[in-house]
Amino acid sequence: MPKANVTFEDIGVTVTVPAGTRLIEISEKVGAGITYGCREGECATCMMRIVSGMENMSERSVLEDKVLQENMAGRQHRLACQAQVLGGEVVVRPG
């Protein structure tokens, strides 16, 4: 199965995960500082920053894109409850 490495910069932990895993599934278990509200891509509480490896993330869905825009997100921002890791190396941090 294809794997990806996700590094949570705030806690200094890298997790090797199956490709296609959503960030929410990893970050909560590992205790990273990303916090969650609705968990359904509406509230933007889990907006976080992809420090590097955006090319290894899933494309924004229409819903995620709309919510990010409404919250004045930059290009490096994603919603952790929506974004999936597709492979390679990804480094993330809260905020």
Partner: peptide, 21 residues
């Protein structure tokens, strides 16, 4: 050690993470 940036960064797998949970 964490506060002073001296900690060794950890690498774990999803399976290990699930087991520790």
């Amino acid at each position: 050690l964490n506060l002073t940036g001296q900690v060794v960064r950890k690498v774990i797998t999803m399976e290990e993470l699930n087991r520790s949970q």
